[in-house]
């Protein structure tokens, strides 16, 4: 088992905090751009079409954002775990 009980509890806690935090995000901050976006807006800079079209986005309502957040959470978690496991295996093979 890669993740022990302590980390499983932490994951559940983070997902729960995310689900609650998203409520406040949609209530208070959703329409507002971040610091860089506001700077671009104030300089009358129009964002160009992006050169790469990503397969997913963060979603524009609570449930879509919640699902996309969990999808992203799992992808990031697995990427780091698989990378670290791969590197450890490589080390073990080299040591043997």
């Amino acid at each position: 088992m890669i993740l022990d009980k302590k980390y499983i509890i932490a994951i559940l806690g983070i997902i729960a905090a995310f689900a609650i935090g998203l409520v406040f995000f949609f209530m208070f901050a959703e329409p507002y751009g971040d610091g860089l976006e506001k700077t671009m807006e104030n300089a009358d800079y129009e964002e160009e079409e992006q050169s790469y079209s990503a397969p997913l986005d963060y979603g524009d309502n609570y449930f879509a954002a919640l699902i996309m957040g969990i999808v992203g959470f799992v992808i990031v978690l697995l990427c780091v775990l698989l990378y670290a496991r791969f590197m450890r295996k490589k080390d073990e093979t080299r040591d043997n």
Partner: peptide, 9 residues
């Protein structure tokens, strides 16, 4: 490793 992964996510 688990801390890195959970923190990243």
């Amino acid at each position: 490793i688990p801390l890195m992964a959970v923190l990243a996510a």
